[in-house]
Amino acid sequence: MLESVTSLDVEERQRLEPHDALETKMEVVGLDAWYSTKQALVDVNLNVRSNKVTAIIGPSGCGKSTLIRCLNRMHELVPGSRVTGSVLLDGKNIYGSDLDAVDVRRRVGMVFQKPNPFPNMSIADNVTAGLKLAGVKDESSMKEVERRTLERVGLWDEVKDDLKRSGASLSGGQQQRLCIARALAIEPEVLLMDEPCSALDPTATAKIEQLITSLKQTYTVVIVTHNMQQAARIADYTAFMYLGKLIEYDETTTLFENPRQELTERYITGKFG
């Protein structure tokens, strides 16, 4: 697999890669993705840095959600979908025959656009849902995890007396933080977030953004957002996509202040479409 990486055109790599020597957590190599006959991703190459927040921006329909859903093999759940190329997690291809989708998703967690807590489970059960799948049965360690992860997402003080209430009884912003807690409870290495604030009000959004910034100490975060300011606020690296292609990828400040591609410049200055 490494051969195919090094064989990439040097100029191409310079265009796509930030110039630093940080550790790579995930590496996307020559990724194409289809929905039945429609191609959604075209030869995408991307390095996701360890313990950094990477944002993916671009106009709607550019493939940014498809890309993030290829990083934990959620894309293949769509009937008729197809993926070629590879995505390396710590150097190992997640589409390889020795890894299965279930294990990949435990290591690469995901938070979605609309908060989707399990409505018939209590807040506590929502948090530990993933642990129960893994076969954890120990009550006291569950309680431990509930408290730790809810504290981590800043929800503990708000819900500690109502842990038995339905997860659906919370406000939208609280639900989204609950979903983040649910994803964190199984201790993934990477957290993917697909427009996690698009259904939330500004106050709730601010809380989530704060949370994302604090999460990178422990996790590698990849976030899709249609909101450029959000990317500028929270991301260390930003990738710009257009029509299924990765156009530019760099440190966030560089990409926003000094874009190398004209398309990128037009997009971030709002001259698009």
Partner: peptide, 10 residues
């Protein structure tokens, strides 16, 4: 979205 929530937990 409910199915995805569970799939994403492995």
């Amino acid at each position: 979205s409910q199915r995805e929530a569970a799939y994403a937990l492995g």
